[in-house]
């Protein structure tokens, strides 16, 4: 592992979190992004849960892909295997937290089943495969992607909290104004394009 490798890791991290932000550029994970961003508190809880699950799942998925699927030439089964792993992992994490880290379970537990069908988790695992990352780069990619998700959702929650008392035109109340806000955030994040 030389210096180049670590620089590469950094580039991957910055790209996944900011330049091609998982929600604002790749459109993965929109449901919780729009749904759980009403208050900064719940948004940060969701962000933390997502970071936890995605990092763990990209690790396990990477390991399974490298040591089980590739040697047996059944890489085409990655979709099925990954989704099974993710579902099982989330279930296991919920059980584990409930037993051993009760305060964390109280804080994050509600969001965990939500993350199972979240596009972002499966999307990250498949991206790792498509881009040919090794396990460590895959984990870093996962962590950075989730961090980008957390950043985006917390910013949106902050804006939504501020917008609560604004006089929004009737047709735009509820979802449409949130989407417009997300669109403007997406434009802002486009500014990161020249970062790398």
């Amino acid at each position: 592992m030389n210096g180049n490798y670590f620089i590469n890791l950094m580039i991957v991290a910055i790209t996944s979190s900011l330049v091609s932000n998982v929600v604002l550029s790749q459109f993965l994970g929109l449901c919780p992004f729009l749904g759980v961003s009403k208050k900064v508190k719940t948004a940060s809880g969701m962000g933390a849960a997502v970071i936890f699950v995605i990092t763990l799942s990209s690790l396990v998925a990477g390991v399974v892909y490298k040591f089980i699927l590739t040697p047996l030439h059944i890489t085409y089964l990655k979709t099925i295997v990954f989704i099974l792993i993710i579902a099982a992992l989330v279930q296991f994490v919920e059980l584990f937290l409930k037993k051993f880290v009760k305060p964390l379970y109280e804080a994050l537990g509600v969001y965990l089943p939500l993350i199972t069908t979240n596009c972002a988790v499966l999307g990250v695992a498949i991206n790792n495969v498509n881009d040919g990352y090794d396990i460590l780069t895959g984990v870093v990619n996962g962590f950075a992607t989730a961090a980008g998700f957390a950043i985006a959702i917390i910013i949106l929650a902050g804006i939504r909290e501020k917008m609560e008392y604004n006089d929004i035109p009737k047709p735009f109340r509820g979802m449409p104004i949130v989407l417009v806000t997300a669109g403007l955030m997406a434009i802002a994040f486009c500014g990161f394009a020249g970062l790398i």
């Binding site: 047996l72 059944i74 089964l77 295997v81």
Partner: peptide
């Protein structure tokens, strides 16, 4: 092999 692996997982 495919069936076996997925079933095993």
């Amino acid at each position: 092999i495919a069936v076996a692996i997925v079933a095993a997982i």
